[in-house]
Write a protein that binds this DNA or RNA. Sequence first.
DNA 1: ACAAAACAGTTACACACGCAACTATCAACT
DNA 2: AGTTGATAGTTGCGTGTGTAACTGTTTTGT
Lengths: 147, 147
Amino acid sequence: MTGRLLLDEFLPYRLVRASELVSRRFAARYRAAYGISRPEWRTFAILGQLGNTTATEIGRRSTMHKTKVSRAVAALEKRGWLSRATDVADRRAEQLELTEEGAKVYGELVALARSFQAELLRDLGFEAADRLDAGLAAVEKHFLREE
Amino acid sequence: MTGRLLLDEFLPYRLVRASELVSRRFAARYRAAYGISRPEWRTFAILGQLGNTTATEIGRRSTMHKTKVSRAVAALEKRGWLSRATDVADRRAEQLELTEEGAKVYGELVALARSFQAELLRDLGFEAADRLDAGLAAVEKHFLREE
DNA sequence: ACAAAACAGTTACACACGCAACTATCAACT
DNA sequence: AGTTGATAGTTGCGTGTGTAACTGTTTTGT
């Protein structure tokens, strides 16, 4: 029961490594195509999906720190891809949405993501991808409940 | 086929988020107990498992950048947990190993890791953990082959 | 045998990051 | 109504990180 730990049997280690391998490869593509960083892509993706949301909600869904979100939002705004408007019901919050130009870029990023996912499913094989899906769902179910 | 991307169906996103949720929680424990950073823990874990290795090998196995490894090794050495010796066969390389004190700390970290893993398996359920295992194995098989 | 390329590891620099502290607003409670 | 505590978001500051450039060593190719 003592002795060394075999990392290939340690789930957190394998999860982190797999995540880095996959996300680094995907990041290389959108960085090459549009020069956006990881926090920017994540912000883009959530905002694009929801259509209209706040920085706090982006942080909650992405597990990004609020300062990271704040800076990503500022960067996207600066590039003219995102606009802010103070929420009338709660003037602390800002409703964010993509500009017309931003929506166009978002559409292209979605296409990039879809082709990456298709490629990934092909590489992993259907059955393995399905198992990964189920395993991740269990992690999400347990860990996302607690905040 | 166009339109928005549902992130909950996008595997890279889910993989990253799950990885962050799990590894952040584990990192909080060893940070609280020993004040070590993530790169330091990873270095510790690989060195402890292999017994004797080089910085390059640590980088390869952990997917950490070589400068990250270099700094983690320096930090562990500074705390007296690791010692270096120039490789006699290849004098560019340094053979690393844990000191007696380092091995003691490593043993305690292993215990921490084991209890975290047990807890995780319990939380996820055996079947889900098994599927996660299989899914990650497929990712590793595909992505680790290519370097 | 020698020049050129490859590789192990470190460091300077610029940039990204998280923490803590801050402003502004809203909610709760007396 | 007014005080207290919570929340949305930003920013200063110290620290972490990757890129590129560097030293020293080994390998490759001629």
